[in-house]
Design a protein around this nucleic acid. Structure first.
Length: 460
RNA sequence: GGCGACGUGGCCAAGUGGUAAGGCAGGGGCCUGCAAAGCCCUUAUCCCCGGUUCGAUUCCGGGCGUCGCCUCCA
C-alpha cells in the first residue's frame, strides 16, 4: 500500500507517488530569524520530520531543503510597517547580520534537541539574491510585474487561477481588507522587490535592475526551491498559515517562471494552540523550548506530545497535557529499556504500523500501537525490536535511552541511601523512613527495586 | 464584514452510518515492612435542536460556542 498524504492543493488525501522513481524532493519553509522560535513553530518542524522519516521508511531517497529567511521583511506590504531585522537590530544593538546568525544557530540547535533530522540543504535568502533577481526579471519580462514608487509588484490579476491553493474568495477578502493598498493595483498583489527608502541606509540592501533594495518575502522560496529541486518537485510543506498568502504567492511566481505549480503535494501542519489560543511570536509573549526544559521536561517529551495529535488537527497545549506526555514517554522508555537487547521485529505489528503511517501519518494510532505492543505477551526481545522499528519514524531515540546513572547522584545522598538500606536490613523502619524523608527533602527519591534501592533526582 | 476549521470523559486526543482507540490524571485491587515502580480492573447519553435512515457521535439544515485566516507569522 502506498503512503497516503493530504494534499492541500487537491483538498484531499491521495496516494503519494514521486515524480522520479524512488526519489523524493522535499522543500520545507523555514523560519524568519529575527527572534527565537516558539514551541508552536517547532510543532511544524516535528511534523515535517515525521513526514521525512515516513518517506525514508517507505524506501524513498529523500532530498530535503529548508530555507532560512534572514532578509528583513516589512510587517506590512503597504510599506507602513517596520522591518523585523532592523527593528531587532535597534532593540539589541547587534547588526541585522548578527541577529540572523544568532537565531539561525539557536534554531538549528533546538532541532537537534528534538531529534529532527538535518536537511541536506540549508539555504539562506541573503545567499541567493541573484537567483531572486533573476526570477523577478523573468516575471517582469513576461508581463506579470509592475513598478511603483517603492518597488516591483506581482500583478495577480493576470493569473486566472490566482489563489486556488487557498480557494481564495478575492471579492470577499477585499471587503475585510485591513491594510492600505498604497500603489498596489490589487490588494492581493505582492512585492517582488522593495526599494530602500530614499534617505535611509539599510543594513541589508543590494543593487538590482530596479535600484538598491531587497527582495520580497515570497520570491526567495520560489527561487531557492527551484534552484535545488528543480521547477517541479514532489512535496512542499510548511505551517497552515502559509496557505493563503505565502504559498499562494510562491505558486503564482512559479506559474509565471516555470509554468508549474511548483510542487505535486502541498502539506500543511496545523497550529499549536496555547491554552486555547494561537501562540503569537510578534506579540512578544510566547513559550520557548527552553521554558519547557527549565521546568524539567525534556525536548523529546515535547516531540512525544506532538505525536499525540494528527498533524492536520490543531493541538491544545496545556501543562496537564505536556505533563501526561512526559510521564507516558518515560514509561515507554523504561519499558523499552527493561526489554533488553532487540531480537526480530514482529511482522504482524509491523504491518499494522505501516498501515497507520500510510494513513496520512497517523501518529496517534502509532502511539496506541506502542501501548498495545507493550501490553502484549510477545517475548521481550521481539517487543524491543518491534518498538525500535516503529521508532524509525517516531524518532524518540528509544534505542539509546538510559535511566539516570547512579554516578550522577551526590556522594552524600548515596550515603544517606546506604544508611537507609542498613536500617531496612535491621528492620528499623522508623530510621529507614526518616532517611527517605531526608533524601526526598534533598531533592531525590529512593525506590526499592528487585535489584536493590535506586536513587534518582526528584521529578521537577 | 468575508472565508475556513473545529466542538468526543477531569486534561490531551483517535475513530466510525450499527451504541466510542490510546495516553495522562482519578478510583479499586495485587505486590511492598511502608512506599515507589510494575501489573490487573474501573469511569463518555460523542455541544444543543430538527431532518434523512431500520439505525447518526459519524450525513444534511439551524442554533450556540471556540479558534484560525483576511497584517508579519509554523
Amino acid at each position: 500500500m502506498p503512503l497516503n498524504l493530504y494534499d492541500t492543493y487537491a483538498r484531499q488525501q491521495r496516494p503519494f507517488a514521486p515524480i522520479e522513481p524512488d526519489k523524493v524532493r522535499l522543500y520545507a519553509c523555514g523560519p524568519t530569524v529575527y527572534n527565537f522560535q516558539h514551541i508552536g513553530n517547532y510543532r511544524t518542524y516535528i511534523f515535517e520530520d515525521i513526514l521525512r522519516r515516513a518517506l525514508e521508511y517507505s524506501g524513498y531517497d529523500v532530498y530535503h531543503v529548508v530555507n532560512i529567511t534572514d532578509v528583513g521583511h516589512l510587517t506590512s506590504d503597504a510599506d507602513t510597517g517596520e522591518d523585523k531585522m532592523e527593528a531587532g537590530s535597534r532593540r539589541t544593538g547587534q547588526t541585522a547580520w548578527e541577529i540572523a546568525e544568532q537565531y539561525t544557530a539557536d534554531f538549528q540547535e533546538k532541532l537537534t534537541w528534538l531529534n529532527v533530522l538535518e536537511p541536506h540543504i540549508w539555504c539562506r535568502a541573503t545567499d541567493h539574491i541573484q537567483e531572486q533577481i533573476d526570477a523577478i526579471s523573468t516575471i517582469e519580462e513576461k508581463g506579470f510585474a509592475y513598478r511603483t514608487e517603492d518597488g516591483v509588484y506581482f500583478d495577480t490579476s493576470k493569473l486566472d487561477d490566482y489563489g486556488h491553493l487557498a480557494r481564495l474568495d478575492i471579492k470577499g477578502l477585499q471587503g475585510g481588507m485591513r491594510v492600505d493598498l498604497g500603489e498596489k493595483r490589487r490588494f492581493t498583489d505582492f512585492a517582488l522587490w522593495k526599494l530602500s527608502p530614499k534617505n535611509e541606509q539599510r543594513q541589508m540592501e543590494w543593487d538590482s535592475p530596479w535600484g538598491k533594495g531587497f527582495p520580497g518575502w515570497h520570491i526567495e522560496c520560489t527561487a531557492m526551491s527551484t534552484k535545488y529541486l528543480g521547477p517541479r518537485f514532489d512535496i512542499h510543506c510548511g505551517g497552515e498559515d502559509h496557505i493563503p498568502v505565502h504559498h499562494t504567492n510562491e505558486i503564482a511566481q512559479a506559474q509565471v517562471c516555470y509554468d508549474t505549480r511548483l510542487a505535486e503535494f502541498w502539506l500543511h501542519g496545523a497550529f499549536l494552540q496555547l491554552e486555547g489560543e494561537k501562540m503569537s511570536k510578534s506579540s512578544g509573549d510566547f513559550l520557548r523550548l527552553e521554558s519547557l526544559i527549565e521546568k524539567g521536561y525534556d525536548a523529546l517529551a515535547y516531540r512525544f506530545f506532538c505525536l499525540g495529535a494528527r498533524y492536520r488537527a490543531k493541538l491544545s497545549f496545556t501543562w496537564e497535557s505536556i505533563d501526561g506526555a512526559a510521564t507516558a514517554l518515560n514509561r515507554l522508555r523504561a519499558a523499552a529499556h527493561s526489554w533488553g537487547d532487540p531480537g526480530t521485529a514482529d511482522e504482524d505489528y509491523i504491518a499494522q504500523f505501516k498501515e497507520r503511517v500510510e494513513d496520512d501519518l497517523n501518529m496517534p494510532r502509532v502511539l496506541a500501537l506502542c501501548w498495545d505492543l507493550a501490553g502484549s505477551n510477545l517475548p521481550d526481545d521481539i517487543k524491543k525490536a518491534t518498538l525500535l522499528h516503529f521508532d524509525q519514524v517516531m524518532g524518540l531515540q528509544l534505542a539509546t535511552w538510559q535511566p539516570k546513572a547512579a554516578a550522577e547522584i551526590p556522594a552524600e545522598i548515596q550515603a544517606m541511601a546506604e544508611k537507609r538500606q542498613q536500617a531496612r536490613t535491621d528492620k528499623d523502619w522508623a530510621v529507614a523512613d526518616q532517611m527517605r524523608d531526608e533524601i526526598t527533602a534533598a531533592g531525590y527519591e529512593v525506590e526499592d527495586t528487585p535489584e536493590g534501592p535506586r536513587v534518582s533526582p526528584l521529578k521537577s
